[in-house]
Amino acid sequence: MPKEAKPLILICEDEKEIAEMVADHLEGEDMLPQMFHRGEHAIRFLKSNHANLMLLDVNLPDTTGFQLIEELRQNNIQVPIIFVTAHNSEVSKVKGLDLGADDYLTKPFSLPELTARIKAVLRRTETAKDQLITNNVEITEKPFDFCDAKVNPTRMEIEFPDGASEKIGRKELGIISYLVSYPNTVLTRRSLIHAVWGVHADVRSRSLDQYVVKIRNLLTAHECNTDIFRTVHGVGYIYDPV
């Protein structure tokens, strides 16, 4: 049985001794730490890589932790964040949490407490992801119509006019939901990939097209109207119900 991947924890901290101490401790806790001493380097990494969590100081040589978290959110980078900082005023704590941080720990701190907080945030993050089918679909969403069929996200299935029903996968459901969210609009392949696989996903258009073929074949097999779900050659797709 393959081992579970170690969570990647970014440490964005200007004091190198503290960063190295935390990194050594996290390695012993079966986590994979990566250190950054400047905010710009952390941003650059996160624009093209996934991390499970970031430990973020307020004071950085090139920016502040508050500015950094705002830039992350502006770039739609939703990495969980724990502030680890000497700023212990109530104003700073409230600001950090209001900006979207998941926790706020003040220096000095104990390493066991830091570990406990990291694990708590990781658990909450995973629980929240359980509600997601793709980036744009939650399992709690209500059924909706698509090409004469009814799509049920909770059951992850499509009910057809002929009375049959078929299970569908997360990617197919994500594609259909995104198309229905933007009717009568030409959606590029890239926008669909970002919506379903994520902004940083390395997915080729051919993979998307293969999923679209699966959706069309399923609809055609149950005599649904696929004329309103069209390919716009060289661009992407359009769902044109009216």
Rank of each mutant, 00 (worst) to 15 (best):
L132F: 15
L60D: 10
N135T: 01
S181P: 00
A23F: 08
V212G: 08
Q78T: 08
R204I: 10
V79I: 15
G198Y: 02
P241H: 12
F66L: 06
N76M: 06
K214T: 09
N59M: 14
R189G: 12
V203K: 08
P7K: 05
H50E: 14
M21T: 13
F160T: 03
L132M: 13
Y178D: 04
V151L: 09
T185S: 10
K150T: 15
T134R: 04
T125Q: 13
T154W: 12
A201P: 05
K95N: 05
R230G: 01
I133F: 02
D57R: 11
L32C: 06
L208A: 05
V58R: 00
R44A: 14
L55M: 14
D130C: 02
K142C: 01
P33A: 09
I9E: 11
I43D: 03
R189F: 00
H50S: 12
T185M: 07
T63A: 10
Q34F: 10
T85Y: 00
H37Y: 11
R170W: 01
A116K: 12
K142V: 11
M21I: 11
A19V: 03
Y182C: 02
G169N: 13
R190T: 15
L60E: 07
A51G: 10
A51N: 11
E90S: 07
Y211N: 10
S165W: 05
Q131D: 13
E90K: 13
T154N: 13
P2H: 08
G65N: 10
F109S: 04
P7V: 05
Y178A: 06
L10V: 03
M1G: 14
V203F: 05
E17P: 01
V91R: 11
L53H: 06
L26Y: 05
I133P: 02
N152K: 07
I118G: 03
H50Y: 08
D162Y: 03
S48M: 06
P80L: 03
R38E: 15
Y104M: 02
K129Q: 14
A5E: 15
R204Y: 08
K93R: 15
T220W: 00
R170F: 03
E4S: 09
Y237C: 01
L122A: 03
H25C: 04
C224A: 09
V212L: 08
D148S: 15
P153G: 14
P153N: 13
L10T: 05
H87W: 00
F66D: 05
I118T: 04
H37C: 11
R230Q: 14
V199Y: 07
P161R: 03
P2T: 07
I228T: 13
G163S: 06
D24P: 00
N135R: 04
E27T: 14
V151D: 04
G236R: 05
M54V: 14
V212I: 15
K6M: 12
L99Q: 08
A19N: 09
L111A: 07
V91D: 12
R155W: 06
G169E: 11
I77C: 01
I133H: 01
C147G: 09
R44S: 14
F36A: 11
R124Q: 09
K16Q: 11
S89W: 04
H41L: 13
N52C: 13
S207K: 09
E166D: 15
T140P: 00
V196C: 06
G65P: 02
I168A: 03
L219W: 04
V199D: 15
H200K: 14
I168Y: 00
N136F: 05
P112N: 07
